[in-house]
Amino acid sequence: MQLFRPEDHDAALVGWGVRVLLLAETGSRAAEAVSMRIAGFGGLPEAQGEMFAALETLIDDPAGYGLFVMDCETFGGLDAGRRAFAILRAAGCQVPVILVSTECSTQSFPDDRSAPILLRSPLSAVSMRVGFEHALRERMMWQAA
């Protein structure tokens, strides 16, 4: 897929104004780093330290968030992340999801939302950027139109 941006569009701010729910260990270095990267892309990160509270927030207000990012390590690994994703989809919540885990041997950027984006931990700025743009690709296409 090839995306075109107008010249007056700041490429660094692909997620301008998007509310992002970040599920990670409260106060951890990883959570702070991911939060800063999301903000650097123009997103509005909101941290949550408890998995079911985060899922409830997304299910209760699915239109209020443009992305859900989960650092799986604190909550039981990649299996816990996949369970969280399944709960969201079973509840009808179609928010794009990025799961970050050390268990990811290969990063995954699926074409549809029937699978989450998988990123390897520790998270690099480049992989977060690619995952963020991939998750928000539909939003970027609407802005370009």
Rank of each mutant, 00 (worst) to 15 (best):
7 E>T: 12
43 G>Y: 04
109 F>I: 11
13 L>A: 10
56 E>A: 13
70 M>G: 06
53 A>M: 10
70 M>S: 02
50 E>H: 09
82 R>F: 15
69 V>S: 01
75 F>K: 00
129 R>T: 14
74 T>C: 13
16 W>P: 00
66 G>C: 10
39 A>R: 14
40 G>P: 02
122 P>Q: 02
98 I>K: 00
123 L>Q: 02
97 V>S: 03
105 S>N: 13
8 D>E: 11
16 W>Y: 13
30 A>F: 10
144 A>W: 10
99 L>V: 06
5 R>A: 11
66 G>H: 02
66 G>M: 02
139 R>K: 13
25 E>W: 04
10 D>R: 09
145 A>M: 13
139 R>V: 12
16 W>T: 05
102 T>V: 09
125 A>L: 08
138 E>N: 10
110 P>N: 04
93 C>T: 10
17 G>Q: 09
110 P>R: 05
58 L>D: 07
81 G>N: 06
34 V>N: 06
104 C>I: 08
19 R>I: 00
55 L>A: 06
58 L>V: 06
108 S>G: 05
85 F>T: 13
8 D>N: 14
89 R>S: 07
57 T>G: 03
28 S>Y: 07
55 L>S: 02
8 D>C: 00
144 A>C: 09
40 G>S: 09
131 G>E: 03
11 A>N: 07
76 G>F: 05
105 S>A: 14
106 T>I: 09
70 M>W: 01
52 F>Y: 15
54 A>L: 01
10 D>M: 06
